Amino acid sequence: MRPGTLLISQPFLNDPNFERSVVLLCRDEPDDGTFGLVLNRATTLTLGDVLDLPPRMAAAAVLPLFVGGPVEPNTLHWLHRRPDLLGATDLGQEVYWGGDFEVLLGFLSTGAVAAADVRLFAGYSGWSAGQLAGEMQGQSWIRHPASAGKVFTLASDAFWRDILREKGGRFKVLANYPVDPRLN
């Protein structure tokens, strides 16, 4: 699958790490596996809670952290809208992954990057070679190609439901699927 694709979990996916989640694929290599970031798992933490930042970095310190996935939760990953950030990977639709974090912090402190144009993630979602293809065949995920731009346009708490509604058709019905259908 191409970077910039969104993976939307099926409403009946029985994995608490990915229940009602939307994952942005950042890398998919046949031999190495797949790397992605869950977009709609907010935390109560900010960057300043996990990094000791100088006072001049106050704009960066208040950025919220999201859970990018269950793999290596002590690592930090970022999405942004700066095409000129050295080392960043273009995911399409003016969304970039990674790059020089110190430069990004500098951009934030000077206002060259707005806080609304950066998302920070603790951990990531990862699949070994062939694993995600098997999950796709098992219909665990709904693919939404070329949708990286949604990262900065949809509210994280309603992201899963909103993206399914946007897809329309049978997916619109899934958006209203109850968390526990036994309680209906």
Rank of each mutant, 00 (worst) to 15 (best):
M1F: 15
M1S: 14
M1P: 12
P3N: 12
P3D: 07
L7F: 09
I8Q: 00
P11R: 04
F12P: 05
L13F: 10
L13Y: 07
N14K: 14
N14C: 14
N17L: 10
N17Q: 11
F18G: 02
V22T: 04
V23D: 00
R27Y: 09
E29L: 14
P30A: 10
D31N: 10
D32W: 12
G33Q: 06
T34I: 13
G36I: 02
G36N: 03
L37D: 01
V38I: 14
L39H: 03
L39C: 05
N40L: 02
T43V: 07
T43G: 05
L45W: 10
L45H: 10
T46N: 13
L47Y: 05
L47T: 07
G48H: 04
D49K: 06
D49V: 07
L51K: 07
L51H: 09
L53F: 06
R56A: 15
A59I: 10
A61N: 06
F66P: 01
G68L: 01
P70L: 09
P70Q: 12
V71G: 01
E72I: 09
P73D: 02
T75P: 06
W78Y: 10
W78V: 13
H80D: 05
H80V: 06
R81Y: 13
R81D: 11
R81G: 13
P83A: 15
D84E: 15
D84T: 15
D84A: 15
D84W: 11
L86K: 15
G87T: 11
A88Y: 11
A88W: 10
G92R: 07
G92F: 03
E94H: 13
E94I: 05
W97E: 03
W97Q: 03
G98P: 02
G99L: 03
G99Q: 02
V103C: 10
L104I: 10
L105W: 03
F107T: 08
L108D: 01
S109K: 05
T110P: 09
G111T: 07
A112V: 12
A114N: 14
A114E: 15
A115F: 09
A116D: 13
D117A: 08
L120N: 01
F121W: 04
F121V: 11
A122Q: 09
Y124S: 12
Y124R: 13
S125M: 02
G126M: 05
G130S: 05
Q131C: 11
A133M: 12
S140K: 15
W141R: 01
W141M: 03
I142K: 00
I142A: 01
H144E: 11
P145W: 02
P145G: 09
A146W: 04
K150A: 12
F152N: 00
T153K: 10
L154K: 09
S156Q: 11
A158E: 12
F159H: 01
R161F: 05
I163A: 04
L164C: 00
L164Q: 00
G168N: 01
G168E: 00
R170H: 14
V173M: 08
V173G: 02
L174K: 03
N176I: 03
Y177W: 15
Y177L: 06
Y177G: 05
Y177E: 04
V179A: 13
D180Q: 13
P181T: 08
R182F: 10
L183P: 06
N184M: 14
